[in-house]
Amino acid sequence: MSLYTRLLGDLTGRGLAALAGFVVLLVALPSLVSSYIATVATIVLYLAFLGQAWNLMLGIAGLLSIGHALFVGIGAYASAYLFAIHGVPPLLGVLAGVAIAVAAGALIGYLGFRFAIGGVYFALLTIAFAEFTRIMVDHAKFLGGTEGLFLPVSAASRHGFDLLNLRGSPEMFYYLILALALAALALCRWLLTGRTGYYWRAIRDNPAAAQALGVDVFRYRMYAAMISAGMAAVGGVFYAFFYNNLFPEQVFGIERSIELTLAPIVGGVGTLFGPIFGAFVLTPLGELFTAGVEWLQTSGAIGRHVKVDGVKPLFWGIAVAAIVLLRPRGIWPWICDRLGLVKPPSERS
């Protein structure tokens, strides 16, 4: 099967055109919009990237993790520590971060699968590891503890384009995360159409039947946990160098783990484009709410005593709950059907 068939074979002509248009639009975006919108788009792409990593584990291999911030945090802290304290460029730091995250993913996966901890209990195991790590980092002096870990920023580096050290302008970060998100999409698509993907989906639907067909269920589940953890760690490196500061609560907190599950669940668990689409719906939705509330306040419709901080997440929570109730399979499969972007199974080769 050619690489083209594996990556794009499912798409109709219309689907291909939509994808191509989407990519062109994203590439051109920074020159079309304000820097504020470009920053929002960077965050959207970041969440889309993480969403795909997480989705690999739940949607494809059937393992619910609510502690993925652990892997993101490992990538972020490992690369930031090596860069800020030892001057190791993130291009190397990412290797360390990914290696540690993969090992952590392997450990949690090993414990979970060997002790046959399923469903919600596995989810709680992932939370427990993430929270445990958060408190440990709180107390790790060499990582800055609760005071945080900061990356050196100079005025010059704000405008540069130093990919090796990940010091540069917002545009550089935008294109970097765009490339990462597209690469993640291609990687997931490639895995999914190969042997591994067939085995993962079989295990998700029925582990006993998969095993009877010769699938080494334990091994393939471990692959899913490790690949997902490794991808999340890459996202963590991006996070560290984009924001330049790390605090345990903000990096490892359960809010972060929940945040990164939202885009894939809203977009559609188990679909490849769902996490990207979900991110593109949710983040702008949040920004819109903020803008709306600020407008209401300046126009005097609501009083100053209302704490604006809470309004955006309030509407956001209500919007997400509504999506779960109205489109429980996610929004993307529904849109995909409506617009005819994907071939029915009978037309695929």
Partner: peptide
Amino acid sequence: QPFAELTVLENVTVGAL
């Protein structure tokens, strides 16, 4: 014990792999 979300052909492909 079918793989419910997979097509019939995909079900058998898992075995054939």
